[in-house]
Design a protein around this nucleic acid. Sequence first.
DNA 1: TTGAAAGCGTTACCAG
DNA 2: CTGGTAACGCTTTCAA
Lengths: 343, 343
Amino acid sequence: MPIVNQAQIARSLKVSRATVSKALKDADDISEGMKKRVRDLAEKFNYIPHYHASNLQSKRTKTIGVVVPDISYSFFAFAVDGIMDAAQRSGYQVILTVSREKVDIERKNILTLLSMRVDGLLVAVSKETRNIQIFEKVRRSEIPLVFFDRSVGGLGFSSVGIDDREAARRLVDFVLRKGYRRIWHIAGSSGIDIGRNRRAGYGDALTRRGIRIRKDWITEGGFTREDGRRGFRELHRRGALPDVVFGANDQIALGAYDAMRELGIRYPEQVGVVAFSHREYANIMSPSLTIIHVDPCLLGRKAMELLLRHMDHPGTRSRRLRIPAEIEEGESLLKRGDSVQGD
Amino acid sequence: MPIVNQAQIARSLKVSRATVSKALKDADDISEGMKKRVRDLAEKFNYIPHYHASNLQSKRTKTIGVVVPDISYSFFAFAVDGIMDAAQRSGYQVILTVSREKVDIERKNILTLLSMRVDGLLVAVSKETRNIQIFEKVRRSEIPLVFFDRSVGGLGFSSVGIDDREAARRLVDFVLRKGYRRIWHIAGSSGIDIGRNRRAGYGDALTRRGIRIRKDWITEGGFTREDGRRGFRELHRRGALPDVVFGANDQIALGAYDAMRELGIRYPEQVGVVAFSHREYANIMSPSLTIIHVDPCLLGRKAMELLLRHMDHPGTRSRRLRIPAEIEEGESLLKRGDSVQGD
DNA sequence: TTGAAAGCGTTACCAG
DNA sequence: CTGGTAACGCTTTCAA
């Protein structure tokens, strides 16, 4: 016997559907006796309320939609964890979708979420070219959206992320202060802001110290481990070894390690690696890597909190929230620090 | 202007709601001209269909509910990835919930998912005592459920997992064949089957080789990194160092490493570590750890596929699907293998 | 204290 | 080809 509805309970009890509805939600204009009869039968029949039928009237679904490029990137796994945590606390259910870094899947996912009438959207865009159209549609729908980690600017939506440019500058400056000069950069795609900004921060750090930016020390690609491996090999083909490789993220750093193992290059003795990452992940690889990290859980939680504000107060002005990043030094620099003079 | 509905389009066009509905879904009893007028206005008004209102009739929501203990365990992150992949392919949306290893949250989550009328459920139970009641409720609701990774037996639901006992036996036997005899086991909680089974497999391996099981070489706890750290320290207090530590999972193994670092014990030179893990995760830590692993993506995909079968053919008999596990040898054993004679 | 009726957004069926 | 009406499961308002 599939799930029963209120009508069947009403029929069995020979009362109206309205009475059953009210009894089940403990309305105070229903007698205790009736409430008990209804509840007992509901229990016996294994009655389970119909979430969406109820929400059909209330215009609120108590759900939020989340779009991430890939849940198997541990960064997003942790971010989603932070989101789920904050969502749970405020009584929201989460519809999770994954875009696999594809704009068209992302588009479809957002459309589905809108059609599910989620009360709000949390989106980390894919790294392909952003399609403004779908976000225009979201704006028109008046369903609040907050970008997290990866955002699309100029659309008037709030976003929560880190100041990649400044963080990258600080990280590279940290390396320079250790006395290293030959710093390669395996950048991600510059099609997405995190890629562009981290690369820009790398440039900033060099420029401020009057060091020329060498194009042949930089390579672009994607953000995967394989991209990191390819990137290292490409730069390696161009010339001598660097002191330090700066990876745009942790996957790229792992890929660089892979390449070095393949090429017989010892790390951290010969080449140090620094990268963007986050503590939970870096802890596994540590202590070999020096990272600049942001807590992805915190980022998710902040994003959810900002979204809640937008949902509760529709008029709220959009904000760009920046989570501070922290440098965590690993052996890859400590060890080499001894063999190179500081400045 | 919030999202418009079909009625507003109908009113604007001075046609009936039925006509609009049919035009929008390209029914063949509507003229092309009318279809165009409807579609154009829908576009202009930013019409977005109402997922749940449609599904109210069709009795299918094209959604499945997933319950995991914690998405920040990379194992579950990958498993969810596999689920999302298979779900996307078959046109299902995923409602993800996290129980934080708490039975009462798990219960609430399942209840919410039932009330959302998901077409099916994929559940990895929390490690606390299982509450049969809620699953009894699921059974009565006739909504198909498949357990993955962690299951509750005797309820008639299908499950997808690994044969932990056999896998643990093989892993420990592998270590024994390398010539090691002093093997500690930092077990997880025996409140859950994976904990019990892995511990049993550890015992099997020893017994089959006529080695006595020493209770003081085994400790129980949870499955976190901290549990692993605590476990190692506890066993360490009881006596001399082991040859190898067998961790019930990778977090525990990391915790054992933590403890050894704190205690000044060198690994893998002094103590080797073997554990249950999965390749994606172990690759990060490798090559120091020897693992027995199962592909969590595959597990998720298989679970989804099995669920699809149950959803499509309601009568299907329940099955216990076992994903094979594979041993991947790391340096922790290779290196020590040289200093100990084989058998 | 209970119930009748309208409505939430959509689809299905049948008439015209 | 188009439209009226009922139905999906539930809530809410207003009468009784």
